[in-house]
Design a protein around this nucleic acid. Sequence first.
DNA 1: ACTACACGCGCC
DNA 2: AAAGGGCGCGTGTAGT
Length: 566
Amino acid sequence: MQEIIEALHSASWLAGHSLPGDIDQLLLAGLPCRPEWVYGVKCLDSLLLSRMADENRLSYGLEDLACTLLSASPWKGASTALMATPGNMASVPPEIRKERCRLDAWWAYKLVEALWPTFVASRSLVEFTHRVAWAIHRVCLAGAVVDLDEFDRMAGNITEQVADLLWEIHREVTAHGFTETFAPTNDHHIRVYLYDILGLVPPKHTKTGLAAVDKSTLQSLSHPVADLLVEYSRWDKLRSTYVDSLRVCVSPTGDSGSARVGWLRWHINPLGARTGRRTSENPNSQNWPESVRRIVRSRWPAGHIGDFDFKALEPVILGWVAEDERFLSAFTKGKGYVDVAWWLFKKRVEEGTKEYKAAKAIVLGTNYGMGAGTLARALGTDVDVAARLRRTYFGAFPGVHAYMAGRRAELLNTGQVVSRTGRVRRLPVPDGEETPGFKHLENVAVNFPIQSFAADVTGSAVVDVEAALLREQNQTLTEHHQHLARIEKNLTNGHPLGTVGLMEYSLVENEVHDSLVLDIHSAHPERDTELVVETMQALPTLRRLVPSFTIPLRVKVQRGTSWGGQ
DNA sequence: ACTACACGCGCC
DNA sequence: AAAGGGCGCGTGTAGT
C-alpha cells in the first residue's frame, strides 16, 4: 500500500491522462456519462497506465487496485476471455463491452475519491489537465485530410533522391572492387569498403572495438564516398519514415471536390512527455518536415489550413518566471533575439546574421544547459570566446542567471522542481551533487518549469480556441464530441469523406508544442483566423488558473491551402 | 527468433 | 572529464 501511495505521489505531476476510448463508447451508445466517471477514469489512467515519474516505473492495473484497496470484485475477466486477440474488444459483444466500460469508469472514480488527498496537489490543476486531455482527444478524432497527389509528389521527390544517391554509391564502390551488392545502411559493408578496400585509417572505434562508421566519423574522413553515404542516410531516413511508414497510416477515402484525398487519424498521448507536453505516434506528426506537412489539406473543398504559432514562447516564459524585466521585454515588446544580440555585442543586427544566430543559440542553449564547449562548436568559435559570451549573457540578464541558480538549489534542497501551474517533476538527488548524472538532472531542473508551462499555454490554447469556435456556432461541447466520434468511426470504417456528414465550422486539428493547426472552414476564414489569434492571446483558462500570468503573448499566423503552405 | 540498446535524425 | 531540454521511429548490432 505504501508503495502504491508513493507511486501515486511520484506521478502527481501527471494527474490527467485519459482513457477516452471508453468514454467515446459510452457517448456513442447514448449511455449517460457522468462527468465524475470521466474524471475518475482520467485520473487513474494517468497514475496507473501512463509513464510514471522517472524513478518509479510501477505498473498496477485499475482492477488490481480496486480489488486490493476497495474490495471490488474482479469485473474484467468475462470480457477479456471473449477477446479474440489480447486487447482487441472487437469480438466482445457490445453489452459486455459497455458493462466493462461502466465498471472501469465507476471503480476509477471510487479510487480517485478514496486516494485523492494523497496525491493531488491542486484540484484546479487536475481539472485543467483533464480539459486539455479531452480537447486533445477531440483533436485526435478530428484527424487530417491528406491530398494524395501532394503525398505522391512528396514521396516521389524523396524516392528519387534516394535512388540517385544509391546509383552514385554503387558506381563508386563497384569501380573500386566491392563485389557484393553494397547496402549503404549496412555498417559492415561501409567498414569493408572504406577501411579494407580503400585503406582509409579509421579515426576511431566503437565500444566493441569495430572501426567507427557513424556520421561524425564519415564526415571527418573527407572522402567523396563517405559524403555520399551521409547524404544517403539522410534521405533514406526521410524515405522510410515519411514515405513508407506514413503511407500505411493514410486511409484512402475517395475524392473531395477535384482532389484525391486520404484520411489520417492522430494518436496523441496527452501527457506522453515528462514535462507535460503531448506526444504523437502512428504517425508522429510532431516531427514532420515542411514538405511532409504540405500533404495536409482542408477537409472542405474550399477550406484552408491555418498554422498559429506562439512566437518565442519559451523565452517569454523564461523571462516571466525568472522575473528578468530586460529579457522579458525583449521578447514581449522588443525584437527578441535582435535585442539579446544588442546586449551581447552592443550592435544592431539583422535577422539571419551570424550575431543573430549566436544570440539565438545562446538563449536556447543555456536554457537547455549547453556548456561552453558545445556552444563554441555551435558558433564555430573558440571555447574561451564562447565562455566569454556566456558571461556577457548572464551579466546582461541577471534574472536568467539567478533563475538557473535557483533551480539548482531547489533540486538539491527538495529533489524536485515545480512549474508555475504546480506541476511537479521529481528528480531525486540522494547524494547531492555527487549523484550520478547530476549535471543532466540540473539541466532538467532548469528546463522543466519552462517547457512544462509552455505546454500548459498551448494546452489552454487548444481548450480555449475550441470553446471560442463552438460558441460562435452555438454548439455544445457534447454535441461537437458526439459528432466528431461519429465522423471518426465512419472514416475509420472506410466511408468516403463526402458521406460522413462533416461539421460546417472551423476546428483545431493538431497541436505541435507551440502551435495550433486549424482546419478553417470557407464560410468565415478571416473571422475565424482573428478569433483564434485573439483567443490564443487571451488564454482565459490558463490565466484563471494562474492569475499572476499576465504576460502578453504574440501569435504568428500562416494560412493557406495546405499545412505550412500559402 | 526475439529483445534491448545505441545511434541518427526529423520536429519544437 | 564533460555533459543540449523534450519526443518517435527506423536501422543495425549485441546479447539471449
